[in-house]
């Protein structure tokens, strides 16, 4: 059943994925279910009560369509945060957590290169996050006709892909920090701080014209540029996994050479 590090990494995620999958379905269904009543409300009247900055940041003016509503309500903050939290939690556990509990030492005395072990874990993590992306896409695809959201299949795929990518970026950064340092606190703390900082940069870029350039350093810009529910998939989306892979490539030689605890 479990005979290599990749399958082991997936197997270890089975309970987490089940729990998170249920959470994703519930969140998406709940938000989508509100749409019919939301669409009937007098949006213009509601919006008058919002500060204009907020309308801009969350693209609230587009909320008169189901796509705009979901982009603003789900894809701007709720889903990215869920993906980042899952990815960072897992990414930190599968090296640093195992190292702190003494499990990793045994694995690293098997005749397998440490870099291979790390690659297996990374791919296992990416596939795990992908399962959540798939759950997201399926949930949207099934609820869309039921509630009358009229989402294009293409848009659903692009949106799920985008969320997968933001998960990959932060998950691999967490894994890279874990591999480089062996410390779970850092493996959670560094990507969490990065997520907070880049989210602030994303907000600042939208609110202050002089800071507009900041959006280029923020994965949240990359994750929302195309909607993410939208007809196109901007190339910027691919910068997210690229950053994650780059972090891992930097960490791999450190991991191959450093002392292992336990």
């Amino acid at each position: 059943m479990v005979t290599n590090v990749f399958s082991k990494t997936l197997w270890d995620q089975r309970r987490g994925l089940l729990g998170w999958g249920v959470g994703f379905v519930a969140t998406v269904v709940a938000m989508a279910a509100i749409w019919p009543s939301f669409s009937n409300a007098d949006i213009e009247a509601v919006m008058e009560n919002y500060p204009s900055e907020l309308l801009e940041v969350f693209n609230v003016r587009a909320m008169n369509t189901a796509t705009g509503y979901l982009n603003a309500e789900l894809f701007s903050i709720v889903l990215p945060i869920m993906f980042v939290v899952y990815a960072v939690g897992r990414g930190s556990r599968i090296v640093a957590g195992e190292e702190e509990s003494g499990i990793l030492a045994m694995i690293l005395t098997m005749p397998v290169h440490r870099t291979t072990v790390l690659a297996h874990k990374a791919v296992g993590l990416v596939v795990g996050i992908g399962v959540l992306g798939l759950v997201l896409a399926l949930t949207l695809a099934i609820t869309s006709p039921m509630i009358g959201l009229d989402l294009a299949f293409r848009a659903i795929v692009f949106a799920a892909l985008t969320q997968w990518c933001i998960g990959i970026e932060f998950g691999l950064v967490a894994l890279a920090v874990a591999a480089g340092t062996g410390r779970r606190s850092l493996a959670v703390g560094v990507p969490a701080a990065l997520a907070a900082a880049t989210y602030l940069a994303f907000l600042a870029a939208q609110l202050v014209d002089q800071l507009a350039w900041l959006r280029w350093i923020s994965p949240f810009h990359a994750a929302t540029k195309g909607g993410p529910l939208g007809p196109d998939l901007p190339w910027l989306v691919w910068t997210m996994p690229a950053v994650g892979v780059a972090a891992l490539v930097i960490a791999a030689p450190v991991f191959a050479r450093r002392d292992i605890a336990g």
Partner: peptide
């Protein structure tokens, strides 16, 4: 890796 292929190891704190 060549060492690992030919040795067995039991850590003091096996987990």
């Amino acid at each position: 890796r060549a060492v690992h292929a030919r040795i067995g190891y039991l850590p003091g704190d096996f987990a």
